[in-house]
Nucleic acid binder design. Structure first.
Lengths: 123, 123
DNA sequence: TATGTGTACTATGTATCATAGTACACTTAG
DNA sequence: CTAAGTGTACTATGATACATAGTACACATA
């Protein structure tokens, strides 16, 4: 479920955060589902438990999961999360489109490619 | 001409590289224009000359500039650069659109926002 | 009671980034 | 020829982020 790319410049904890964000937003992990324990996930990925804990604390801070003392961490059922993620997405898109226009990409080509890429995505 | 954002996570040398890439691609710096010298730019930005050198060596490797011993560095007149940058841009766009679709952004909203952001860009 | 859970520490090693300083070969203005 | 400015190549040092290693505590549950 979680894969670490050691070629990636992003730190491990950040990769884990983003992966779980996606799984939760897409509904693969439903509300109140129990998350893998810090220690078990660390063992599974062969990394340090502290790294998992760091990822979980960020996910908790962002409202994606909630911890229960002595029991574990669970997926939060917050509908506002999707809206937040959407907001972040449009922020990125705006930056990228700005860059595209600056390097001389035409409006029409930009739209055409966007549509094309959208179709190409495999579910 | 060059501004360093110390709040940015990106390292200084990378910010300098990207800034010059943009200036060259947009044509602000024309072919065979002399680049600021390593030492003078370092002094102007109040950073270490080694940092500038690192940025310049990357720009040279990417074909954006060419060095002349004892004289300085100059802007390369390579037309292929724009195409390369365009290729990189579409790679990023594809990744972003994929993410958008995964979190449930509709095709139409994606296109609408892209067009909107394109219009909003100030030149 | 024993095990598994989240959480909070300290300490250590590593890699990247940036700085500091020095040095050399080259070009050019004087 | 000389001096100043150029790119280039080193070594050394410090700061920071990242990841690991190890320990410890309170809690829930079989």
């Amino acid at each position: 479920m979680i894969v670490i790319d050691y070629q990636n410049r992003k730190p491990i904890y950040e990769q884990i955060v983003e992966r779980f964000q996606m799984l939760i937003i897409k509904g693969v992990l439903e509300a109140d589902t129990q998350m893998p324990s810090v220690r078990s996930l660390a063992a599974e990925l062969s990394i340090n438990p502290n790294t998992i804990q760091k990822a979980y604390s960020i996910l908790e801070q962002q409202g994606f999961i909630y911890p229960v003392k002595g029991r574990g961490a669970f997926v939060s059922g917050n509908q506002a999360l999707k809206e937040k993620k959407t907001e972040v997405f449009f922020g990125k898109l705006k930056e990228l489109v700005k860059e595209g226009k600056e390097i001389g990409i035409s409006r029409d080509l930009c739209l055409q490619k966007t549509a094309q890429f959208y179709e190409e995505v495999e579910t």
